[in-house]
Write a protein that binds this DNA or RNA. Structure first.
Lengths: 246, 246
DNA sequence: CCAATGCGAGAGCACTGCTCTTGTTTTTCC
DNA sequence: GGAAAAACAAGAGCAGTGCTCTCGCATTGG
């Protein structure tokens, strides 16, 4: 019994039946993602997806229990797509100075967000369905943060990260310690605390641009973003040659 | 001919007709805001609003051309509510040190956002209707930013703001100068540029909390936010007694 | 081979935004 | 004051939505 929506990568020996099921499920998600990119999450219509796929709407309920579940499947995919982009940028820049690695990961996330605004809205915008985010989304979400914190951890390990001058308050340190215990990342609690503070600020920058809040205010958005991200790197204490702008 | 949705404050001598019209318009918006707060923007239903008000749905179209226009009216109201909150915090803290004024305004915005999550989502979350934000929303939006930048400007005027050590790039300065010319605020372009960089980061912090992105990560959210905001004040170069935590 | 299960199609329900028409009330102008 | 004009509420109706249920057909597993 396959659960709905999960990416059935390895179907293997399974009969033709479940293979067909996996293919139809993938086709549904693909068409849904297409409509999402075109019209946005609010206008994503189950019936339209079914229509485009040449099947009747009720048949679609064999694959997804409802519209919200289709959406959460798309959310999980979007999270992991963004996570993959961030991880790729982090590993591609391995060996570079911490501040340029940080900048590369941030740039990659921004690029992905601008290329997929509706999917970005799905994961970092207002929560669309009822209100509760299922657990599978949060664990998919952590990949992005892990990629970000990973370059900080690498910098600390290499001695390329300055210790905070005036440490964060004790309560924040406690939260940081709990997070560290859960994700198992090797870095001082004070540095993780600093990262946890910077983390939402990065998505504030990206979100403002994607959601059009910068329209009529900032025109040279690329340099704006790069400068902001460099400043965040400085806040994080990341070392690196100053402004190795390509 | 009254335009839809606009707050008809001064009806004055006008006949009983337009007075009734203003009242009905206000009642519609009130009920819509109630439903918005309960169910979110996606589930706001024109018919349900009409039903709750004891009228038929088609009658509602005499007051609002459509659902989207009702929503943009709510957006404008939400913007100006948040703007009023920010302005009040700014003027209430007049005379205090710049960094504590900054913190007060930030706190006030966070409090409002947490108290009205769906309205916050309306203005700083994913853009819900088609895609374009009418002009009236952007001018209402500027009030919030003006309150924020206002305390920075006051700090500069009082000599309580440090000049940036390494200035922002030239292109960002150009954008800052254009913004300054448009809004007519007395502060150096470099300082405004710094403020424009910090601005989205603040709403990244608020948005992450309101949208539940901090769930399971940061538990002591108040100290977290205060610390982050203090750090932003430092980035802005705002002077003030260190951590005058109440 | 035959029962069990998975599946697609259709009808149908309750709901949505929106339009058009039909009377009624109110304002406005001569 | 009375007639023309405008504003209004109500209803019917259209196209679309998510979702449920039932019905036959196909595939699967024992």
């Amino acid at each position: 019994m396959l659960c709905f929506g999960q990416t059935v990568a390895m179907v293997g020996i399974e009969g033709a039946r479940s293979r067909a099921r996996a293919e139809v499920t993938a086709a549904i998600k693909e068409e849904a993602r297409r409509q999402l990119a075109e019209e946005g999450a609010a206008r994503l219509s189950l019936r339209a997806v079914a229509r485009e796929l040449g099947m009747v709407s009720s048949a679609l309920y064999r694959y997804f229990p409802g519209r919200d579940e289709l959406l959460t499947a798309l959310i999980v995919d979007a999270y992991s797509a963004a996570g993959a982009v961030a991880e790729a940028a982090a590993s591609d820049s391995e060996g570079s100075a911490p501040s340029v690695r940080w900048r590369e990961v941030c740039r990659a996330l921004r690029r992905w967000a601008l290329a997929h605004p509706h999917e970005y809205a799905l994961v970092y915008g207002s929560p669309v369905p009822g209100y509760a985010a299922p657990d599978r989304t949060t664990e998919a979400a952590s990949r992005i943060a892990m990629a970000l914190f990973g370059v900080v951890a690498d910098a600390v390990a290499a001695g390329d990260c300055a210790e905070p001058v005036d440490g964060p308050p004790a309560e924040l340190l406690a939260d940081a310690r709990e997070v560290r215990a859960r994700i198992g990342l090797e870095l001082p609690a004070a540095v993780l605390a600093r990262s946890l503070v910077v983390w939402p600020q990065l998505f504030g920058l990206i979100g403002f641009e994607v959601f059009g809040q910068l329209r009529g205010v900032i025109e040279r958005r690329e340099t704006y973003f790069d400068h902001a991200v460099d400043q965040l790197a400085a806040t994080l204490g990341l070392f690196g040659e100053r402004s190795a702008r390509s």
